[in-house]
Simulated assay, not measured.
Amino acid sequence: MDGKRKTLLSLVGVVCTMTALGFASVPLYDWFCRVTGYGGTTLEASAGSETILDQTIKVRFDASIAKDMAWEFTPVEREMEVRIGETGLAFYEAYNPTNRPIAGSASYNVFPFTAGGYFIKIACFCFEEQVLQPGERIQMPVTFYVDPEIVDDPDGKHIEQITLSYTFYEIDLPEPQAQAALDLGADSIQTDLN
């Protein structure tokens, strides 16, 4: 009986460990991608590069929305050419054509994936959730640079073009705005009754 109990406890321990690793794998993978730029995940910095090269690189901008997202979302400029290390500023435009406020969050990556570790964002609308009121149209900035170390990377030095892609997903409205939307709905019902 003692051997069976030991085996059972060992198996339960293995199952618990595997379950914990399964839950931890998503945040660990996300952290790994953000630190290394793996899979086209861009890096972040608080300031621009101190080194600017004469060599240029073309940056293309791509925008899409998730299947159930009601916004219209496009880059203002489809592409720009920047010197490697130079700070670039691009804008994306979002429009809410509905009669309700909608909150969105953007996921992003760059292609080719090997450029992810060299594409550095200084500021981006994607760092925070966005809320658009009915009929609201906004332009959202992203400030970035391409790290000069890309020219020393055996794979990176041959990259002539980087595509920065965003996809917006609808998320739950933040609590104060969700309450305001409910209040507006109640006001319109009250007006209809009068």
Score class of each variant (00 low, 15 high):
S165H: 07
D155C: 03
L132H: 00
T163G: 08
Q179M: 13
Q139R: 08
D153T: 03
G185S: 07
E128N: 09
M140Q: 10
T163I: 11
C124K: 04
C124Q: 03
V142Y: 04
H158Y: 13
E128F: 10
F127P: 00
Q161D: 13
S188Y: 15
I162R: 00
I159N: 02
D147E: 07
G117T: 00
L184S: 15
I150A: 06
E149I: 03
T167V: 14
G117M: 00
A180I: 06
F125L: 05
Y166C: 04
I150V: 14
T163D: 05
Y145T: 10
Q133A: 06
V151N: 04
P174E: 12
S165G: 05
P174N: 12
E128M: 07
P154S: 13
L132N: 01
A123T: 11
P148H: 03
F125P: 03
P174D: 11
A123S: 12
I159P: 04
G185M: 06
D147T: 03
T163Q: 09
G117E: 01
D155F: 11
S188I: 15
L132R: 02
I162P: 01
F119P: 02
D153S: 05
E129P: 06
A181M: 14
E160M: 10
D183I: 14
R137N: 12
A178D: 05
P174L: 11
R137I: 08
F119G: 00
L173Q: 13
D152I: 00
A180P: 08
F144Y: 09
A180F: 08
